[in-house]
Design a protein around this nucleic acid. Structure first.
Lengths: 302, 302
DNA sequence: GTCATATGTGAGCTAGAGTCACTGATCGAT
DNA sequence: ATCGATCAGTGACTCTAGCTCACATATGAC
């Protein structure tokens, strides 16, 4: 016959009381009232059929049986405490690996990494490139920063940072031929886009209520690029008009290497921080808050 | 800063799941549903900020962090289990010491000890004499069997076995002079009693609606004894009429060494088994039940 | 005696732990 | 390919272990 274990909370109350020599002190350590601890001790007495403490003046002292129990239980709890503390420290000290598409990394995050490191030094951030959202398959990825549209899978926690804005950009030379009042004039240029986002130009055309036939024609004459990076280089080289996330073009727009005379539109996508569910760390939240602040600053300083 | 321990129930669920390799198996061991265990594991993940299990086919497997935790936690729980099992066995194997007044021991319990030992062999009973109810001050006393009247102190659990009956007894020679129909004729004999129970004769007189003055007179002519044992010897020797608990005189009445022609009366006292509070063992209950059975048999076989 | 300090406890409340019933995933067998 | 068996995850709900509160009781210092 297997002897049932007593309730663990009662054992913990016993351990703390035996170690500190006082119900009140144990209650304080466990953040409960002394009454709670007193009841737990009572239930242990009943479980074992023997008193573990005896009254001694105003306080208590261990009985022989109590001492016998304390020897092992004290060490067992010390071990539990140690290993839990150790694991938690290990988790907190491990590098926090943020995965992110190359373009976002190069054009937005890297210029701000220095500030991130100095403002959140305890995060121990590592950055890796990942073009798709399967980065969690690599178990050492702690978070993913990327543009994506709902619905999101159920087994990740997604923190929405800002709505994605896309805009049509061109080199200054090409852009000065365009009429901001008449976006359709733009279709006379080559339309450049990333192959991973073929819906970008149709979204833009739709937002400006432009003719689909005209768009299709212009798209046929245009060109898709595999990466946003090449797309923007192409636009800067004057090859045509590119449709890009405004956030990524931000610095180039400010420096004047690119011009976006036709304004920007909001898409259904969001810049999101993806986190694995149920394992929210404090630094995940800190990082999300820092990103939000930084994004707001980027947009306000425009 | 002190890292808080996770909830212990969650650690137990983790330990069982890691050891058995399955949520369902752990749930079965812990006598809960698999859903309960699943939630506990989830809460552990959140506490540590890292997944301790990863899906592996239909089941789970420990992550690196889970394995790290399992090493210590498994041993700590094994230690807790062992020491609790050990203490419980020690308590159960320790002798069960029953304290009892000498007269009750000699006249009722000792003649039945053989049967007690053979019917409840696992109790490992030891009997010690104790004339008063302070026997619990001796920490090795597990229970006290004694006559006593309520109210009882708050810090003991009292199991009432039977109501005390007292009767007036005399030697056969003396008793044949008495008239059972007229109890007051008894006052012509010397009244014998124990000094610890001076109220016995007045109770008896009151129950028979006898004159108090007559009683006092007879008491003055009578004699008190320090112990019931001497009192009964005196009665058997024909020194007078003794007032005694019927239970203790039972065997002498049956053998004819004493006669009780005036019947018996019930007092407010009870034969009780006193147990220390909050440390009820199974064998205390077994003993109480055995005593009740045996007392019923004693009374029925009259 | 009074006051400060400790533990014990009856009554009542609440958060945490559990159940139920369902979903989705995987794997073996037909 | 399909079906059924097995397993873990979860939303909604329920319930009770464990807590707090307030008071009782006991000890020791002054």
């Amino acid at each position: 016959m297997q002897h049932a274990m007593p309730p663990l909370s009662a054992l913990r109350a016993f351990e703390a009381t035996a170690r500190l020599g006082s119900v009140t002190a144990a209650a304080h350590e466990l953040s409960v009232t002394h009454g709670a601890v007193s009841r737990q001790l009572r239930s242990l007495d009943e479980h074992f059929g023997v008193a573990l403490f005896a009254k001694a003046g105003r306080g208590l002292e261990l009985t022989n049986q109590g001492e016998q129990l304390q020897r092992d239980v004290g060490e067992a709890f010390a071990r539990l405490r140690d290993s839990c503390t150790q694991l938690k420290r290990d988790v907190e000290d491990a590098p926090f690996t943020l995965a992110c598409p190359g373009s976002l990394l190069a054009r937005w995050l890297i210029p701000r990494l220095d500030r991130l490191h100095s403002e959140l030094p305890e995060i121990n951030l590592q950055v890796v490139v990942s073009e798709n959202e399967h980065a969690f398959k690599r178990s050492d990825v702690s978070a993913i920063l990327a543009f994506s549209a709902p619905p999101w899978p159920a087994d990740v926690e997604v923190i929405e940072l800002i709505a994605e804005q896309i805009c049509a950009v061109a080199s200054p030379r090409l852009a000065e031929q365009a009429d901001p009042e008449h976006p359709e004039t733009l279709f006379s240029s080559k339309l450049l886009y990333t192959t991973s986002r073929p819906q970008a130009w149709p979204q833009w055309a739709n937002a400006h209520a432009l003719d689909t036939a005209l768009l299709d024609q212009a798209l046929d004459a245009g060109q898709g690029f595999e990466h946003l990076y090449y797309l923007m280089e192409a636009a800067m080289a004057g090859l045509g008009v590119a449709i890009v996330p405004k956030l990524i073009a931000e610095d180039d727009l400010r420096s004047g290497r690119l011009i976006a005379p036709w304004g920007d539109i909001e898409t259904s996508a969001r810049l999101c921080l993806w986190l694995p569910r149920h394992v929210t760390q404090r630094r995940s939240v800190q990082l999300a808050e820092w990103l939000k602040r930084e994004l707001d600053d980027t947009l306000l300083s425009r």
